[in-house]
């Protein structure tokens, strides 16, 4: 930021100062205008719309009636439970997998670049492609059921209550768990990359000192790496929770806009989408958006309280 200030003052004449201002404002004009309208402005607009009975067009101002109706709605409550259940399971899974992969890839190993690329691989495909592929693999006669049968695991699954042709994504008891599995898998590569950049800030000397004191790799991990990664945990957890609370793509692709079967895949965002785009309840849906924002913001603040020491962003 001091960069611009270090220009020789002899050059900073009045006309040059003016042309700098003109240059600056014309360079930022379009981006800032877009941000003001489509981001900052849209929050305020959403808040405004949420106080209206607004279907295909604005009808009347009804105050907080939308909010009251939402909070009493059984399907909305279900969507909150579903979303929180998903986040509570997927976040620790993503973090643990990401951390594990990062630590492994950070070792002095041959083919390090290859492994990093391989572990990130599932994250490059679109959510649509990967979900359709996942539905195929988890279908009654799909790869997953075939392989477990081949490995002789069917009795085990039978004991857990899953027959040989179980439809994982299509059954209300396993649909959400399947999506959790899918997203833990596809997102672990991204989490690995985040953890890697934090791992690389830990100085090597600490490990050398620990090794001299006779610490093994296991101890070194739990006594050094894990606690020193605290800013990393905080960052990854925050990113992961914010993403998880907005689960949508996989839910609507696997369960349609109804979150089938039996609303087991209806998440908060899916509920918002359904109310807005399918039912044209724009006022109501805008209020759902505001509630979602409050929940996400609240979760971020709680995490900050619990784990952070805000990182230097």
């Amino acid at each position: 930021m001091a960069a611009a200030g270090s220009r020789p003052s002899a050059l900073a004449g009045r006309s040059e100062r003016r042309s700098e201002l003109i240059a600056a404002y014309s360079l930022i004009a379009i981006p800032i205008a877009l941000f003001l309208v489509l981001n900052i402005g849209s929050i305020l607009y959403a808040l405004y719309i949420s106080f209206w009975e607004w279907t295909t067009r604005p009808r009347e101002i009804i105050g907080i009636a939308n909010y009251q109706e939402i909070l009493g709605d059984k399907v909305f409550q279900r969507s909150v439970t579903n979303t929180i259940y998903y986040a509570a399971l997927v976040v620790p899974l993503q973090m643990a997998l990401g951390l594990f992969l990062a630590v492994v890839v950070n070792q002095k190993i041959r083919g390090q670049t290859f492994f990093r690329a391989a572990f990130y691989f599932p994250a490059i495909a679109s959510s649509a492609a990967i979900t359709v592929l996942f539905i195929f693999i988890m279908s009654p006669s799909g790869l997953f059921n075939e392989v477990r049968s081949l490995l002789g695991l069917n009795p085990l699954f039978q004991a857990l209550g899953f027959g040989p042709g179980h439809n994982w994504v299509g059954n209300s008891s396993t649909a959400m768990n399947s999506i959790i599995l899918l997203n833990a898998w596809t997102t672990s590569g991204t989490m690995m990359l985040f953890y890697l950049s934090f791992l690389q800030t830990i100085s090597r000397e600490i490990y050398e000192a620990a090794a001299i004191d006779g610490a093994g790799p296991w101890q070194a991990f739990w006594k050094i790496t894990f606690p020193l990664l605290r800013p990393g945990h905080y960052f990854v957890a925050t990113v992961s929770v914010i993403g998880a609370l907005q689960l949508f793509d996989q839910a609507i692709i696997a369960g349609g806009s109804g979150g089938e079967p039996a609303n087991s895949l209806t998440t908060m965002v899916l509920y918002l989408y359904r109310e807005a785009i399918r039912e044209f309840h724009f006022g109501y849906a805008a209020a759902v958006g505001i509630i979602l924002f409050v929940i996400i913001f609240g979760a971020t603040l709680v995490q900050r309280r619990l784990f952070g020491q805000a990182p230097s962003w």
Partner: peptide, 28 residues
């Protein structure tokens, strides 16, 4: 690189937009 009034504020504004969830923006 350029110096202009409101630079820091506008830049913070840009960063702040990353905190806005897309679903909230759906309706507006």
């Amino acid at each position: 690189r350029l110096r202009f009034p409101g630079r820091e504020f506008l830049f913070l504004l840009v960063l702040a937009t990353m905190m806005i969830p897309d679903p909230l923006r759906l309706v507006p």
